[in-house]
C-alpha cells in the first residue's frame, strides 16, 4: 500500500506546477499508470481523494490512463507482449527494450488562473 507515498509525490509536483503558473486551482490531473508500475488504480484514486484535501488540487478530478507494456525489439517489432513474458512475441528475442508500461507519469494538468 505505497499508493499514499506516490499520491503525495504527485501532489508535490502538481503544487509546484500550479505555483509556477500562478494558478488558483487545478481542475483535472491526468496520470499515465503503467500496468507494471506497481500501482493499483483503485487504491491510487482513493488515496488521491484523501490526500488532495487542503492542497491546490482540492477540487481536481483525477484521470488515470492505463498504459500496457510496449517493447521494441532489434528485429524491428514494436508493440505489446504476451502476458508477463518479456520477450519479442515475433522472434522470441529477450534482449528487448521496454519503452512503456513500467512508469507513472504526470502527463497533463488543467489549471485555473486568476481572472
Amino acid at each position: 500500500m505505497h499508493e499514499f507515498s506516490v499520491v503525495s509525490a504527485l501532489l508535490d509536483l502538481v503544487t509546484e506546477d500550479a505555483r509556477k503558473h500562478k494558478a488558483t486551482g487545478v481542475t483535472t490531473i491526468t496520470v499515465k499508470v503503467g500496468v507494471m508500475s506497481g500501482i493499483e488504480p483503485e487504491l491510487f484514486e482513493e488515496a488521491f481523494h484523501v490526500c488532495k484535501r487542503g492542497t491546490v488540487a482540492e477540487t481536481a478530478a483525477l484521470e488515470l490512463i492505463r498504459q500496457p507494456i510496449e517493447i521494441s525489439c532489434p528485429c524491428g517489432y514494436q508493440g505489446g507482449i504476451e502476458g508477463f513474458s518479456f520477450r519479442c512475441p515475433k522472434c522470441g528475442e529477450t534482449t528487448i527494450r521496454v519503452s512503456d508500461g513500467e512508469d507513472m507519469i504526470l502527463q497533463r494538468l488543467e489549471l485555473e488562473l486568476p481572472d
Binding site: L10, H21, I105, Q107, L109, E110, L111, E112, L113, D115
Partner: peptide, 18 residues
C-alpha cells in the same frame, strides 16, 4: 479558455525520489 490553462508535465511521479 480565458481563465484556464493546460500544462504538459511528463515527469515521473517518483521524480523527487529518483
Amino acid at each position: 479558455k480565458d481563465n484556464s490553462k493546460a500544462v504538459e508535465d511528463m515527469r515521473s511521479l517518483l521524480h523527487k525520489n529518483d
